[in-house]
């Protein structure tokens, strides 16, 4: 019963908040509106830190949306707007922080982990090289396709 209700209820709730977030009319210039919508997804709300300002109901998020909107209307570039925000709130406001000595571990960790995984994989493979193949083993996928 609950499961049947969950999806419609969630959908209705999400429509409600989506409407409430940005009550203001879209920017006249469609290209600017598109930039605005993209930028507010890139900026973190500092009150509720796991939300971009596009999704947050916090008063600060709405003030920051206004700031972004006005700056886009005034003809500022994306880089100018982001540097305005990072000068005041630090790199933490950006969902994609710049590559600096403080963040290199953050950026390089996935590649590093992949290298470590690859190295482990190679070690396992090479340690088994030259050992006899188990002829009785059947690939289940191949077996099913027959």
């Amino acid at each position: 019963m609950i499961r049947w209700l969950a999806l419609p209820v969630l959908l209705v709730l999400s429509v409600g908040t989506a409407g409430a977030i940005d009550a203001r009319a879209p920017l006249a210039d469609a290209q600017k509106q598109e930039r605005y919508e993209r930028m507010i997804r890139e900026i973190r709300c500092l009150v509720c830190q796991n939300e971009p300002i596009a999704d947050s109901n916090a008063p600060l998020a709405s003030d920051l949306r206004r700031e972004v909107r006005e700056r886009i209307e005034a003809g500022h570039t994306d880089a100018e707007i982001l540097s305005f925000l990072t000068a005041r709130y630090g790199d933490f406001v950006l969902y994609r922080p710049p590559f600096t000595p403080r963040t290199w571990l953050l950026w390089l960790a996935p590649g590093l982990l992949l290298l470590i995984g690859g190295w482990v994989f190679w070690r396992v493979i090479s340690s088994r090289a030259g050992k006899p193949i188990d002829r009785d083993w059947v690939d289940p996928a191949e077996d099913a396709s027959k």
Binding site: L46, P59, L60, D63, E67, R88
Partner: peptide
Amino acid sequence: ADGRVAIDWGVYG
């Protein structure tokens, strides 16, 4: 009143 100066000062809470 409209929070502009607070943003300028990097106030978030």
